[in-house]
Amino acid sequence: DEVRLHVNGHTIEFRGIDEEIFKILEEAAKRGADEEELRRLAEKLLR
């Protein structure tokens, strides 16, 4: 299960996240989070 999030012209792939987590990451990206911040956030949410 892989999703792709487009951030500042880059595509970031995440594996094993559900739609709810994806929406949180998408919102963070809209607020200016970079790839590293998004990955840290995803790790926290998946715990």
Rank of each mutant, 00 (worst) to 15 (best):
N8A: 05
I24L: 13
E19G: 08
V3K: 15
D18L: 03
G32C: 04
E43Q: 06
E36C: 07
A33N: 06
E2M: 13
K30D: 06
L38Q: 00
R47T: 14
K23N: 08
D1S: 13
E43I: 06
E19R: 04
F22T: 06
R31T: 12
I24R: 11
E13W: 00
A33W: 10
I17Y: 03
H10D: 07
D18T: 15
E2T: 15
R47H: 13
L38D: 00
E20K: 11
R15Q: 15
E37Q: 12
I24Q: 10
D1C: 11
V7S: 02
I17P: 02
R47I: 14
E36F: 12
L41D: 00
T11Q: 05
A29H: 07
F14I: 15
E43F: 02
I24C: 06
L25D: 00
F22H: 05
G9D: 04
D1V: 14
K23L: 09
E2D: 09
G16H: 06
E36K: 14
E43W: 02
G9F: 01
E20D: 09
K44T: 12
K44L: 12
V3R: 15
R47N: 14
K23F: 08
E19K: 05
E2H: 11
A29E: 02
N8W: 00
I12L: 03
G32K: 01
A33D: 06
R47F: 08
L5Q: 02
E2I: 15
I21W: 05
E35P: 07
V3W: 15
R40N: 13
G9W: 00
R39T: 07
E20Y: 12
D1Q: 14
D18P: 09
E43T: 07
L5R: 02
D34E: 14
E19N: 11
K23D: 06
G16L: 01
E37I: 08
G9L: 02
K30A: 08
K30Q: 09
L5W: 00
R31K: 11
T11Y: 15
L45Q: 06
I12H: 01
R39N: 06
E26S: 09
R4E: 06
I21C: 10
L45K: 04
T11P: 03
T11M: 08
A29Y: 06
I21F: 06
F22G: 05
H10S: 10
D1L: 14
R31S: 10
L41R: 01
K23V: 09
E2C: 14
R15T: 15
L5K: 01
I24T: 08
A33G: 05
G16D: 15
E43L: 05
I24G: 03
A29D: 01
E37D: 10
E19I: 09
K23W: 08
E36S: 13
N8Q: 04
H6A: 07
L25S: 00
K23E: 11
R31L: 13
H6P: 04
I12F: 00
L41E: 03
A42D: 00
E36A: 13
R40D: 11
K23S: 10
R39K: 08
H6N: 14
V7D: 01
L5C: 06
K23C: 04
R15N: 15
L46W: 03
I24D: 03
G9R: 00
D1Y: 15
F22A: 08
L45S: 06
R39H: 09
R40Q: 11
K44D: 13
I24E: 09
E35N: 05
R31N: 15
R47P: 11
R15K: 15
R47L: 13
L41F: 05
E26L: 14
I21V: 09
A29Q: 05
L45V: 06
F14C: 06
H10E: 12
E26I: 14
E43S: 07
D1G: 14
G32H: 03
H10I: 14
E35S: 05
R39G: 04
A33C: 08
A28N: 07
R40C: 07
L5M: 06
E26W: 08
A33F: 11
I17W: 02
V7M: 03
N8L: 01
R15L: 15
E43V: 06
K23I: 09
G16E: 11
G9N: 03
D34W: 07
K30F: 10
H10G: 07
H6E: 15
E19Y: 07
A42C: 12
E13H: 04
R40I: 11
E27N: 10
E36Q: 13
V7I: 09
L38A: 00
L38C: 03
K30I: 12
R47Y: 05
G32M: 04
A28H: 13
F22P: 01
R4D: 02
A28E: 08
I21A: 11
A29P: 00
I21P: 01
R4S: 11
V7W: 01
T11W: 15
R4K: 11
L41G: 00
L45Y: 06
E37A: 10
I12P: 04
I21M: 15
R31F: 10
T11D: 15
L41N: 01
D1I: 15
L41P: 00
I12A: 01
H6M: 04
L41C: 06
D18N: 12
E36N: 12
V3D: 04
A42Y: 09
K30Y: 10
E43H: 06
R39V: 10
D1T: 12
T11A: 04
V7Q: 02
D34Y: 08
E19F: 07
E37C: 14
L41S: 01
E43G: 07
E37P: 01
I17K: 02
D18Y: 03
V7C: 01
E27K: 10
L46Y: 03
L25W: 02
I12D: 06
D34S: 12
R31H: 14
K44V: 12
R15G: 14
L25I: 07
E13P: 00
V7P: 03
L38M: 04
A33M: 13
L45W: 04
E43Y: 03
A29T: 05
E13A: 03
G32W: 03
R39P: 00
E37Y: 10
K44G: 11
R31E: 12
R15V: 15
V3I: 13
I24K: 13
F22Y: 09
D34A: 10
N8G: 07
R4M: 08
L45F: 04
T11N: 07
E2V: 15
V3N: 11
I12V: 08
E35Q: 06
R31C: 12
I17F: 04
H6K: 12
A28R: 08
H6R: 09
R31A: 12
D1H: 14
A42R: 01
G16T: 03
L45G: 05
R47C: 14
D18F: 04
D18S: 13
L46T: 14
F22E: 03
A28T: 08
E26T: 13
V3P: 07
E19L: 07
R40P: 00
L46R: 08
